[in-house]
C-alpha cells in the first residue's frame, strides 16, 4: 500500500498512525450551516469527515455538495456514494464532479433499501453493486478510463474505501466478502458499529489469518449510545446491527440522566480495547446527531492531538 493519491487520510494511514474519521449527515434542507456547524465541532479531532449519502433512504442535501462545503473550509471530506440512486452514467459523472473539487476520498456503498426512507414507492437503480462501484472508481483513477473505454481528461485521484459489516449473516462469508472488496479495489474499510467486541475480534483474526489486514486499512466503526432506548432500537430495529444483551443491560442499568455518559464511556472503552487488536488501523466515529461528543471520545481514547501531515 503505497501512497497513490493526495489524500490526507491515505498519508496518515500509510504513516502507521491510527487514523480517526467521523461522519456528518447532511440536513433535510438547504442550509449549509447545518453541515459547517457540525464540521466545526469535530474538525480538529478527526483526519477526515464522511458525508453520508441519503442515509436510510431519507432524502437530504446531496453528499457531493456537502463535501464541497467541507472542502471550502479546508477540511478533508470522504464522499459516500450509494448505488441505489445512480446508474453508471450518474456514478461516473458524480465521481468527476467530486474530483473537480479535489475530493480525495470516497466510500463505495450499496445503500439501504428505499423502503426505509421517505420515498418507499420510488424506483431503485442498482445498475452496479458496491463491489462494482469500487472497480469503477479504481479503473477511472488507475487507468484513467471511463467504463465505456474512453480516456478521462484529468482522472480522479481518490482513495477508495468500502464498508464491511462483520456482524451481518452469513458469518462464514464475512471475511471472504472482505477479501472480495479488497480484490475489487478497496484501500480502506470502515466497519459497521461495533458493540459485540468478541465477534469483531474473531472476524479480525480470520482476516489476519488470510493476511487481509496487510492489504487494506481497517477502521473500526463506533457509535456512542445516547440512551438505553437507542441501544434497544439499534439492537432490534436496525438491520445488520449486533448489540449484545449485556450492553443493553449496562445502558439500562444507569439512571436516565447518566445514560449519555455511559454511552460515551462504552464507546471510549471499545476504542481503547480495539487499539490493541492487530490490524485495526484507525477508528470511524459515527456520533449520530451528537457530533459535539466526538472531541471527548477522541481525547479520552488517547487519539488527540491528530497527526499533522
Amino acid at each position: 500500500m503505497s501512497t497513490k493519491t493526495p489524500s490526507k487520510l491515505e498519508k496518515i494511514l500509510d504513516s502507521g498512525a491510527l487514523a480517526v474519521t467521523s461522519e456528518c449527515g447532511p440536513p433535510r434542507g438547504s442550509d449549509p450551516a447545518a453541515i459547517t456547524r457540525k464540521a466545526e465541532m469535530i474538525k480538529d479531532y478527526v483526519d477526515a469527515i464522511n458525508i453520508t449519502d441519503n442515509q436510510t433512504s431519507v432524502t437530504r442535501l446531496c453528499s457531493l455538495a456537502a463535501c464541497i462545503h467541507l472542502k471550502q473550509m479546508g477540511l478533508e471530506p470522504v464522499l459516500q456514494m450509494v448505488v441505489r440512486d445512480r446508474n453508471r452514467i450518474a456514478v461516473q459523472s458524480d465521481i468527476l464532479g467530486a474530483a473537480s473539487f479535489d475530493i480525495y476520498n470516497m466510500l463505495c456503498l450499496s445503500g439501504d433499501h428505499q423502503q426505509f426512507g421517505d420515498n418507499p414507492q420510488g424506483q431503485n437503480v442498482f445498475d452496479l453493486d458496491s463491489m462494482q462501484l469500487l472497480q469503477t472508481v479504481r479503473r477511472m483513477r488507475d487507468e484513467g478510463k471511463f467504463l465505456g473505454g474512453d480516456d478521462i481528461q484529468r482522472p480522479p485521484r481518490m482513495l477508495v474505501g468500502a464498508a464491511a459489516n462483520p456482524f451481518a449473516d452469513p458469518f462464514e462469508i464475512r471475511v471472504p466478502r472482505l477479501a472480495k472488496k479488497i480484490a475489487a479495489g478497496a484501500e480502506f474499510i470502515q466497519t459497521q458499529c461495533i458493540y459485540n467486541l468478541e465477534k469483531f475480534e474473531e472476524w479480525m483474526k480470520l482476516a489476519r489469518d488470510r493476511g487481509l489486514h496487510e492489504k487494506v486499512h481497517i477502521l473500526a466503526g463506533v457509535t456512542p449510545f445516547k440512551s438505553a432506548g437507542m441501544a434497544k432500537y439499534m439492537k432490534n430495529r436496525v438491520p445488520g446491527m449486533d448489540v449484545p444483551d449485556d450492553v443493553v443491560k449496562r445502558m439500562s442499568g444507569v439512571p436516565k440522566e447518566n445514560q449519555p455518559q455511559e454511552g460515551i464511556d462504552i464507546c471510549v472503552e471499545t476504542i481503547t480495547r480495539l487499539q490493541e487488536c492487530e490490524g485495526v488501523r484507525g477508528f470511524h466515529i459515527m456520533a449520530i446527531e451528537w457530533e459535539e461528543k466526538v472531541p471527548e471520545i477522541v481525547e479520552r481514547s488517547g487519539l488527540y492531538p491528530r497527526p499533522q501531515v
Binding site: 445503500g111 453493486d129 462494482q132 462469508i173 459497521q192 438491520p239
Partner: peptide, 19 residues
C-alpha cells in the same frame, strides 16, 4: 431486493432480507 450480483449486503440477518 437490491439485485446485487456480489451480495449479500450488510442487511442480511438470520437468513432474511433487510426489507
Amino acid at each position: 431486493a437490491k439485485r446485487l450480483l456480489n451480495g449479500p449486503c450488510g442487511g442480511s440477518a438470520k437468513g432474511k432480507c433487510e426489507i
